[in-house]
Design a protein around this nucleic acid. Sequence first.
DNA 1: AGCACGCCGACT
DNA 2: GTCGGCGTGCTC
Length: 769
Amino acid sequence: MSAAPPSRHLPPARPWQVALPLPIGAIEFLPPHGLPSQAAPVGFRVLVPWRGELTVSVVVGEAPGKPNARLREAVHVLDEIPWVHPAFVEAAWGLSKLARTPIGLLFSDLLGVGWEARLDHQVRAVAEADLSAFGLKVPGHEWSGADHHATPLLDAIREQGLLDERFAPVPRTVTGYRALDTGLTALTRRQQDAWTTLRAAGSLGSQVDWAARAGVSPSVVAQVLARGWATSIQLPAAPPTLPEPSARVCGSAPDTLPEAEVWRLHGGRSAERHARLAPRIARLLRLGRGVLVIAPDGATLRNAWEDLSGLAQPSGTRAVCFSGGLNPVQRAHAWELIAGGQAGLTIGSALALCAPHPDLGLIVLLEEASDAYKLLSGSRAFLPELVTRMAAAGSCIPLALVGCVPAAESLLYRGEVLPPPKARLHVVDYSSPPEQAELGPLSSPHLRPGDLGYPLSHDLARVLRQVQERGRQAALLAPRRGYSALLRCKSCQHTPGCPNCDVALRFHQERRALHCHQCGYEVTIPDRCDRCGDPMWQARGPGTEWIVQEVRRLLPGMPVYRHDGDHQDDLSALQSGESAVVVGTQGLLSLDAPPNLALIGLTLADTWLNISDFRAGERYHRLLRQLVAWHPSRAPLTVVQTFQPTHPALTCLKSGQDAGFYPAIEVRARQELGYPPHRLLTYIEVAARDRARAASSAQQVADTLHGAGAAPGEVLGPAPSPLARVRGVYPYQLLLRTRNEERLNELLGSLDRRFAARVRVDISPRGMG
DNA sequence: AGCACGCCGACT
DNA sequence: GTCGGCGTGCTC
């Protein structure tokens, strides 16, 4: 019953391993029937039979060892050049094996183009085959379109090795119109005009276009069609338009950047960094090499595109912007330009990482310290991790880490830190009345008016009034959206919490609602406390809504805008210079700074430090540096309200240290604690609907690790997650602290079996533990 | 991811 | 007696 081998005297071909865009590992297929024996075409797309259909997959390697008993053959190789950069394939393989992430998941997260192929698919029975046993409607010995036959039937014939298949790319077309010499009924005068216009043009692309050229209404051309004097035809579609490179060319200084395999450039403003980077990129482009620039978010991407896309490209090539913002047609076009070597420079999001530049000479990772590089779902990959692996892959692509602040992990590489932009910093010390220091930030609403002012200090209020008087602009950053962090009963202190998640519900005054920021649960505010029946609530922990309300009260007549995850006011007046205040969360920094910005206020800096994560200080430092470099040329007064005025992330900024100073302190401090970059930190989550089952499985995971020889310091936990219940499951967590990848792999290997609860491993945890 | 198989509660 | 819940397993 097995397929006839293509040739009896050749050794059986080594199977190929392919990745499908599904959360599964690599799947093996034999090379397509009749293909000359060759090494697996890594990075090429190949059509494979999958659940009775043909599916696009990407070749990721050659199967080791003996071919599995009953493998099927791949059907067709789609590409003549790689669709995915081979260094990416290598990096993804390495990560997939170590992190126990299905490679298909990495591909479906990071390859955003080419999963559906437009092909003309023709089939016929192989010369000697008798398909009568398969039923009536089967392919004959002449080519016929595959869509004329039932897909499962074709697959059954294919499996028997009795099907010949051929594929041809289908060019994209648009519907157009051509005039016919005779019609069904006579035309009116206007219809006659439309017909003459079409006839003179030969063919036209759309009815609207046709009508416009003929100077008639679209209904007239519709009549010409209806009366049979014209017919629709398929015309080849013009290539889609892509974002135009900017006209600006920045930086013509000599290239003084390091020549290392991995190097870095930090500090200063983004325009200065781009200017330093430009000569290096320009040189590589002149040499015909490809350059890939990756940005973590839309704002950074726009900025980089603005500054770098105008660099001179060798003739016949152009800069390409590639991100999720492109539609599928644009994506495919951009990708073909890149693969064909017609795009020397690609600037894009994480989706551009696997771009198949034929001769990639440099990868620039912008803002490598950004948390946005951590994918929050699917593979939960951390882009810098993958990029580092690409740089270290066989082809050794140089890597540049460029950003506002270096990640602590970046300090081991050679590089340069630009002098910090001038900062005017004013710190409001909420801890100064000693009896209030111990209350902590959440208790701070108890500060009575007349003390320091809360949530806007008297100092901040004063400069806000000046901003209004002088017709300038101010931006205030609140640590959260909504009105307040929580609502509390005045008499019994009860705080309404989420029924699914064990967190306090956030209060949204505008919607009169309590909202869980973890799972999205929402209820209207109860009239009275469900514990004691008291009708008085008090809000604690100001969010954007609260701050907006305070500013409105403080500055009557001043426009106040809000920008956060829930609510985006139209900021066009602000952006054109109107005197106003904008209140937002951190996302505000991903917009252009208002042009007339004179004041930035951080209403409660400590929230960034209270996160129980060893990276909190680093993140806070980055936020501060971003704030003072936000405006491209000015140095607005920056007011920071905090309970910790002596935090080094803050004081180093005040004393004029550069952006590398604080991360270096962090690296030293983490030595003793065994945190990255000194050790690899791995997060293991064990979760189940049933709490006891989760707890015992978590303990079982720990026991397994210890049984595999884990030293006491290498395994921490298990401990219940800080959120005791999330979306109805009870998560328990463990941390691994290993000295290197080999050791990590050894320990994780012991967990490669089933447990009674879901076990999830994250080798690049962010914002947890 | 889908989709099937399979084993226990409330219903036409 | 079935419809349907989602736990587990498989896809080459």
